[in-house]
Design a protein around this nucleic acid. Structure first.
Length: 426
RNA sequence: GUGACCAUAGCUCAAUCGGCGGAGCACCUGGUUGUGGCCCAGGAGGUUGUGGGUUCGAGCCCCAUUGGUCACCCCA
């Protein structure tokens, strides 16, 4: 094989397209229903935008996983590893703060991270991203979670686990972090090398440890919800009230955290069964500090990203079949040798054009193959009717129309074929 | 970045101890001068991922490399 798709990238083949269309069509419909507006930002941004968003501790790793290039003017650009930073930039650049709050936006498109591929994790993957900016009301948290919930419900997912947590804000989180550090420092001997590093760099991440021996320790670790300030506690309680009122089932998962510092208050994920270790099919949270970090005025925001490829893995794992794509229902076949064959072929080309102009999907066999071969193809393509044009049909002006479902055929006047088929096709 | 397993036809897989690379499915043609599905016959399709090494001889053994799968790290 001379060329292969680069590591971690995938071709979306025709047989997978029904899944993509099903998901994206559902997303478009829900966006209209919820009042989220579509925004597309560039796939490349100035590298600094993503670096500033990352925060201390994580920045080295973040840089390592970004696809960064220098343009001819010496400007460092990066293929977006996430949506949020670019959306925030556009929000600031276009002065969207003057729009009624919250500004509700969604995007869909590829993102790039230079990671080792594994099940449900690719270097180029596609995300549906939703953001609501400029409003602190916990009802906005509910709104954002609700549209994700609706998508998964409409797609027919079973056994999804909605996980929520509150990790507090710059006022109350330091006390929780300090308690975590103190707690785990008292059990240093039970931490492996990786967890010891987490203790130094990002103590919250200790709660994510997959180390078997750590699980008991983690269960008894200080919980963020026990350290929330009044504002954060009330926010979380109100959000839970809205979720309960709307009947959205969820689990409070006190071990759910985020890797980056700018997250505040609400964090949530949705987990799917049967798609491997990368089970989060949706992840998001509130980031009231991010826009300030990027040089804008204090602006609250909440959003999530949801990987389309993982959604498709989930659909397949659960045996959910997407609706079929529209396909041509009519084939126009031509037969005969020499001059007559040419006339038949021309009549077929003409009829196919008429059918398509009338909105009837039609295909023409190529290569002057035998009728048998043409019917074989029609059968495989799941065509409903085959119009046959040969010497007899040219002479009589009546084309033969064969119904493939019952194998009956009959002559139809050339001028009446389009209407005849229109009547019988849904 | 770390580790394990893997790579033979478009797909799923065989190939005995290192001894002439096969099957099923799919595709094309024919069996019927112009009639699909089922059946039968035939055909096409391969530098065994790539490069090197050992050997009289390598799909098989060794090294490297690329890619895949899965997990870890990380997770925006």
């Amino acid at each position: 094989m001379l060329y292969q798709a680069p590591r971690g990238t995938n071709d979306i083949l025709p047989e997978d397209w029904p899944y993509w269309r099903h998901i994206t069509a559902t997303i478009e419909r829900l966006a209209g229903l919820y009042g989220f507006e579509h925004i597309d930002t560039p796939i490349i941004e100035v590298t600094e935008l993503f670096e500033r968003g990352a925060g201390a501790g994580a920045d080295v790793m973040v840089q390592k996983e970004m696809y960064t290039l220098e343009d001819n003017g010496g400007v460092s650009l990066t293929l977006r590893p996430e949506f949020t930073a670019g959306i925030m930039r556009a929000y600031l650049e276009h002065g969207m703060k003057v729009k009624p709050s919250p500004v509700k936006l969604y995007s869909m498109g590829p993102i790039f991270r230079q990671e080792r591929p594994q099940a449900g994790r690719y270097r180029q993957h596609t995300q549906w991203n939703v953001e609501a900016l400029g409003e602190i009301d916990p009802a906005v948290d509910f709104e954002v979670m609700s549209i994700a919930y609706s998508l998964f419900a409409e797609l027919g997912f079973q056994d999804l686990a909605f996980q929520i947590n509150s990790i507090g804000c710059p006022n109350c989180r330091p006390a929780h972090i300090a308690a975590l550090v103190e707690y785990f420092s008292g059990h240093r001997s039970r931490l492996n090398e990786i967890d010891l590093r987490r203790l130094e760099i990002n103590p919250l991440r200790l709660l994510d440890s997959k180390e078997e021996a750590m699980q008991g320790l983690i269960e008894d670790a200080p919980r963020s919800i026990d350290y929330l300030c009044d504002e954060c506690r009330e926010h979380f309680a109100a959000l839970r009230g809205y979720l309960d009122a709307a009947g959205l089932s969820y689990t409070v998962n006190t071990l759910l955290v985020r890797g980056f510092d700018y997250y505040t208050k609400t964090v949530f994920e949705v987990w799917a069964e049967g798609i491997g270790a990368q089970a989060a099919v949706c992840g998001g949270g509130r980031y009231d500090g991010l826009i300030e970090l990027l040089g804008g005025p204090p602006t609250p925001g909440i959003g999530f990203g949801s990987g389309i490829e993982r959604q498709i893995l989930t659909l397949k794992a659960q045996g959910i079949v997407p609706p079929p794509l529209p396909a041509p229902r009519v084939q126009v076949s031509y037969i005969g040798r020499g001059e007559i064959g040419q006339q038949a072929k021309q009549a077929a080309v003409s009829l196919v054009s008429d059918l398509r102009a009338a909105g009837i999907g039609a295909v023409l066999p190529f290569g002057d193959r035998s009728l048998k071969s043409q019917l074989k193809s029609a059968n495989r393509a799941d065509v409903a009717f085959v119009v046959i044009i040969g010497e007899g049909e040219l002479a009589s002006g009546q084309f033969t129309v064969r119904d493939l479902t019952d194998s009956q055929q009959q002559p139809v006047d050339r001028a009446a074929v389009v209407a005849w088929l229109q009547e019988r096709l849904p």
